[in-house]
Design a protein around this nucleic acid. Sequence first.
DNA 1: TTTTTAGTTAGCTTGCTGGCTAACAGTTAT
DNA 2: ATAACTGTTAGCCAGCAAGCTAACTAAAAA
Lengths: 123, 123
Amino acid sequence: MANQSTQLDHVFGALSDATRRAIVMRLCESEASVGELAKPFDMALPSLMKHVRILENSGLVVSEKTGRVRTCALQTEALETIEVWLTAQREIWEQRLDRLEIHVAKLKKREKSNAHKAKSKSK
Amino acid sequence: MANQSTQLDHVFGALSDATRRAIVMRLCESEASVGELAKPFDMALPSLMKHVRILENSGLVVSEKTGRVRTCALQTEALETIEVWLTAQREIWEQRLDRLEIHVAKLKKREKSNAHKAKSKSK
DNA sequence: TTTTTAGTTAGCTTGCTGGCTAACAGTTAT
DNA sequence: ATAACTGTTAGCCAGCAAGCTAACTAAAAA
């Protein structure tokens, strides 16, 4: 159970950085080598490598080294992890909204009946 | 444009911590005071307050102080921000998958025709 | 008006993040 | 065999994150 938490920690954490989101976007379109990933970023290779590591660590990216080239690819299951979480939250929230709508309707009624008293309080 | 990035940074970052996700989940069900939020966490108040600050900063939570009580509520628009991002990625990814399916089909064909040559290479 | 409650501010630690450079390693090309 | 290319490791730095305690403020309750 703590495991699941940790997975979410890592995926959300990985996506909390613009560079890493850009890498993910890039990998949505096609696999790419580390060098290819680095090009658009104007950043030293080792720095970019760290990002790739973090992405791998989160499960968002997998990579394989062939010869001297490491090819990276997206692992969409990790994205689904957070979609699942989001959906769960939204469901709870929406259930609550349903209850709330009823409640608000009641409040509005009450407001109207309070409006009479309010008039007498006008400074 | 950098603004949008920053917003995503903050929202993803806010959700990359289990405590904060728990707070969000809690607030999905109902508004709550800082003290109420703190109870289940066995954590000093100032520490929890930091989390609340971070959540506010990301736009996920809004709060208002009435008397000595600060009441916190979820701001679901921020969650939608990342749903939008996720959806965008998934669309790109799926478009790519469509292209890829065709490609894979071609590869499989090629594999079969290569199988003949492969036999002669068996050490 | 004193006491309790609820939150806040300040200040400290520990450890991770995100960036760098410099040096090294392994692979491919000449 | 050397040179060029592609990553990788090591080590450094600045700054933020997440936790703590202690001391303070403001509102409610007694």
